[in-house]
Amino acid sequence: SQTQRTQDENEARRIAEEWKRRGYDVEVRNRNGHWEVTWD
Rank of each mutant, 00 (worst) to 15 (best):
residue 4 Q to P: 03
residue 14 R to N: 07
residue 9 E to S: 03
residue 17 E to G: 06
residue 4 Q to D: 05
residue 40 D to W: 15
residue 16 A to R: 03
residue 17 E to R: 08
residue 14 R to C: 07
residue 17 E to L: 09
residue 30 N to L: 14
residue 9 E to T: 02
residue 21 R to W: 05
residue 34 H to A: 12
residue 23 G to H: 03
residue 3 T to Y: 09
residue 3 T to Q: 06
residue 25 D to I: 14
residue 21 R to Q: 12
residue 12 A to I: 03
residue 28 V to T: 04
residue 25 D to G: 07
residue 7 Q to P: 11
residue 5 R to N: 08
residue 26 V to Q: 00
residue 27 E to V: 14
residue 4 Q to H: 15
residue 6 T to N: 04
residue 30 N to P: 07
residue 24 Y to I: 05
residue 22 R to D: 04
residue 31 R to L: 13
residue 26 V to Y: 02
residue 31 R to D: 10
residue 1 S to A: 14
residue 3 T to W: 12
residue 32 N to T: 04
residue 31 R to T: 13
residue 16 A to Q: 05
residue 28 V to E: 01
residue 5 R to L: 13
residue 37 V to A: 01
residue 3 T to P: 08
residue 26 V to I: 05
residue 40 D to P: 09
residue 31 R to S: 10
residue 24 Y to D: 01
residue 26 V to F: 03
residue 10 N to V: 11
residue 12 A to W: 02
residue 33 G to H: 03
residue 8 D to F: 07
residue 30 N to V: 11
residue 32 N to E: 10
residue 13 R to H: 10
residue 5 R to V: 15
residue 26 V to R: 00
residue 27 E to Y: 11
residue 5 R to Y: 14
residue 26 V to D: 00
residue 2 Q to A: 09
residue 3 T to A: 08
residue 37 V to G: 00
residue 34 H to I: 15
residue 35 W to G: 00
residue 25 D to P: 06
residue 27 E to A: 10
residue 3 T to D: 04
residue 34 H to T: 13
residue 5 R to K: 11
residue 27 E to T: 14
residue 21 R to F: 07
residue 9 E to F: 08
residue 28 V to L: 07
residue 35 W to S: 00
residue 30 N to Y: 15
residue 17 E to H: 07
residue 14 R to Y: 06
residue 33 G to A: 03
residue 34 H to D: 08
residue 36 E to I: 10
residue 8 D to W: 06
residue 10 N to Q: 14
residue 24 Y to S: 02
residue 17 E to S: 07
residue 2 Q to L: 10
residue 26 V to A: 08
residue 26 V to L: 03
residue 18 E to L: 11
residue 19 W to V: 05
residue 21 R to M: 11
residue 19 W to H: 04
residue 30 N to R: 11
residue 13 R to E: 06
residue 19 W to M: 14
residue 38 T to M: 09
residue 12 A to Q: 01
residue 2 Q to S: 10
residue 16 A to K: 04
residue 9 E to V: 05
residue 25 D to T: 14
residue 22 R to T: 03
residue 25 D to E: 12
residue 37 V to F: 02
residue 38 T to K: 09
residue 18 E to T: 08
residue 24 Y to V: 05
residue 24 Y to E: 02
residue 7 Q to E: 13
residue 16 A to D: 01
residue 10 N to P: 07
residue 37 V to T: 02
residue 26 V to W: 01
residue 8 D to Q: 04
residue 9 E to H: 05
residue 19 W to Y: 11
residue 6 T to S: 06
residue 17 E to M: 08
residue 12 A to D: 00
residue 22 R to A: 09
residue 22 R to I: 06
residue 38 T to P: 01
